[in-house]
Lab assay of single mutants.
Amino acid sequence: MATGGRRGAAAAPLLVAVAALLLGAAGHLYPGEVCPGMDIRNNLTRLHELENCSVIEGHLQILLMFKTRPEDFRDLSFPKLIMITDYLLLFRVYGLESLKDLFPNLTVIRGSRLFFNYALVIFEMVHLKELGLYNLMNITRGSVRIEKNNELCYLATIDWSRILDSVEDNYIVLNKDDNEECGDICPGTAKGKTNCPATVINGQFVERCWTHSHCQKVCPTICKSHGCTAEGLCCHSECLGNCSQPDDPTKCVACRNFYLDGRCVETCPPPYYHFQDWRCVNFSFCQDLHHKCKNSRRQGCHQYVIHNNKCIPECPSGYTMNSSNLLCTPCLGPCPKVCHLLEGEKTIDSVTSAQELRGCTVINGSLIINIRGGNNLAAELEANLGLIEEISGYLKIRRSYALVSLSFFRKLRLIRGETLEIGNYSFYALDNQNLRQLWDWSKHNLTITQGKLFFHYNPKLCLSEIHKMEEVSGTKGRQERNDIALKTNGDQASCENELLKFSYIRTSFDKI
């Protein structure tokens, strides 16, 4: 039985969820670079991206490699990797027998973001014989899940209580170790020597080791999670996991709180800001991140802002960003909400898709409305799209047979046209069989910064309504002859009103 693990408890099935942008060198404390989270699957090609990484700022997932063999891993080693800020997950990587050479110096898994409450997941690794993470000293947050690894031993010899604050939620089941077939031998045991430290858990006094050649490092209890030197002297209180010299914040392997210019500090002093819960960055760093993602459509890219001495992905609820200094300031009234469309555009074809934009005031991208039916549609669209004030790209209304009016965009005031449909149009209306009105132009103002209007096959939309939009939106004169079809717009509506004058002759039985 794995020490510190839980057996036999019912657990939810383990679901495996399925960018080499360097964020800056980590400095003297770390020998390499800070790398983003990685999802490495199918083959070993991307694994080489770990070569210079000291910190993975995010998670590391290595999974679904069915053609790899043990010899493929023999020359692979990433000794610079010290810390993973989120979680480490391995799933069905064939041929991998140990992690001792792959990650010989991995010391800390912070667990800032977890995989279903777990910071370390080893699942269905069919050839893994031992973990071998002999320098792993601290899992700051989260638990361990090690399950269905039929060859995995050296679990009962690990004292997880020396690595985690609590072992109650560890789930370590259905491994070879369960069948008591392992016969784990710690260093020196074969020669009758006791080389590794022994600890007591559940009444068992057991030597602690990761492999037959690597003991588990056990520091004096007084050192807590700070770690200790090879001689057993406690590291500085700002260290986490390990250090090369005692009581020196510049000799830590990793930091308990924050890293700044080669030393570990309790908090980031001005003019620095907390970033990702582990390091200090200056304003320029946060500003660069903001600008890199301002026009990016890459998933996970955030326009970072500053709030409460932190550089964070977005302002919290009730705050909006001051564009001059990136500071989050309290909103006066309802907060603006910028919604970034991942692929640059979004099609609204149902109430469900409209709900995804609920509360958005600025759309960074283009909207395509293609709704053919739905219950209580006008009210639903207004509830979900009615706060949109600005669209950076274009607005396209296409084959939306259920629409009679666009009044559900009740606050839309600006279409920038930074991206144009077919390279020309910022407003595009095609084949809307029941569209009769755009907006009530006596109450609604709309500016279209650039781009043209396109109207074709809107049989109940009168040309007068379209011409009014040209005047109000500032697009009059931009359109070419064929942009607004004269014969297919309003051709099934009563669009022309003329005053009919009647004269009559009164007659009676005795007068003409």
Rank of each mutant, 00 (worst) to 15 (best):
N195C: 04
C153A: 04
D178F: 11
A198E: 15
H214Q: 15
T68H: 12
Y259A: 04
I306E: 13
E181T: 05
K100N: 15
D159E: 13
R92V: 06
G192H: 07
L102Y: 01
H307F: 08
T320D: 11
E180F: 07
T267A: 10
T45K: 10
P70L: 10
T140H: 07
R256P: 02
D261F: 03
M38S: 03
L164V: 15
C223V: 01
L60A: 01
C234K: 01
E147G: 06
C53V: 03
E97D: 09
D159L: 05
R162Q: 14
N43Y: 07
M83I: 10
R297W: 10
R69A: 13
N257G: 06
P249Q: 09
H59C: 12
G203M: 11
S237D: 13
E33Q: 06
L136F: 05
L50Y: 06
V108H: 13
I306V: 05
P246I: 09
L64Q: 02
T320S: 05
C328Y: 02
V218S: 07
E57H: 12
I56D: 00
P197F: 09
T189C: 09
L136S: 00
N242P: 09
K294G: 13
P70F: 08
D101P: 12
P220V: 03
F78C: 03
L164Y: 06
G37R: 05
P79C: 02
H302M: 04
C223M: 01
L106S: 00
C35R: 01
G132D: 03
P70Y: 05
Q276D: 13
T189N: 05
R298V: 06
T85R: 08
P270L: 08
L50R: 02
I163F: 09
G333F: 06
P330W: 05
G333V: 04
N202L: 04
E71S: 09
P334L: 12
F275H: 12
A190T: 12
L63C: 08
D177R: 11
N202Y: 08
C311K: 04
N242H: 07
E207R: 12
L90M: 13
K224H: 05
G232F: 05
I146S: 02
L50N: 02
M65L: 05
R145M: 09
Q276E: 13
L44C: 05
K224L: 13
D165V: 13
I312M: 05
N138P: 00
S225Q: 05
L327W: 09
G142K: 00
Y30D: 03
E238T: 09
R74H: 15
C315T: 01
L60Q: 00
S77G: 07
L99S: 01
Y259D: 12
L99H: 00
F78M: 15
D277P: 03
R113F: 05
G37H: 11
L164C: 15
C328E: 01
N308T: 06
L128P: 00
E124C: 07
V265R: 02
I82S: 07
L289H: 14
G111E: 00
E207V: 06
Q204V: 11
C293V: 05
E238R: 04
D72F: 04
T250L: 09
L174N: 13
I109M: 01
H127L: 15
L120E: 00
S296M: 10
L90W: 06
I185R: 14
Q303A: 04
P220C: 03
L174I: 10
L60W: 01
K292W: 07
K67Y: 13
W210A: 07
V167A: 12
K100M: 08
P249C: 04
G37S: 05
L240G: 13
E207W: 14
L96T: 15
A119M: 00
C234Y: 11
H302K: 11
V173T: 02
R141W: 12
D86F: 00
L63M: 02
I222E: 04
K80F: 05
Q299S: 05
N135Y: 02
Q61R: 05
Y319H: 09
A254D: 08
N308F: 11
D247W: 03
D169S: 10
K217L: 09
K129M: 11
F275E: 02
E314F: 01
D177G: 12
I172S: 09
D169T: 12
R141C: 03
V218H: 10
D101S: 05
H226N: 10
M125D: 04
P249V: 03
T329R: 12
P269Y: 02
Y171T: 02
N202A: 11
E57T: 05
C234H: 01
H291E: 13
C280P: 05
H28M: 05
Y94N: 11
R110H: 08
E33V: 07
R263E: 02
I158Y: 06
D277F: 08
P197R: 15
L233Y: 15
A119W: 01
S161F: 11
R298T: 14
I122Y: 00
N105S: 08
S324I: 01
N150D: 03
Q216S: 04
S284C: 02
R145F: 09
Q287H: 15
C215F: 09
S98C: 03
E124V: 03
Q299N: 05
F258S: 05
V305H: 09
A230I: 14
T199R: 06
C228T: 01
N135A: 09
W210G: 12
V200R: 11
K176Y: 08
F78T: 02
Q276A: 13
N149W: 00
I201H: 14
L88S: 01
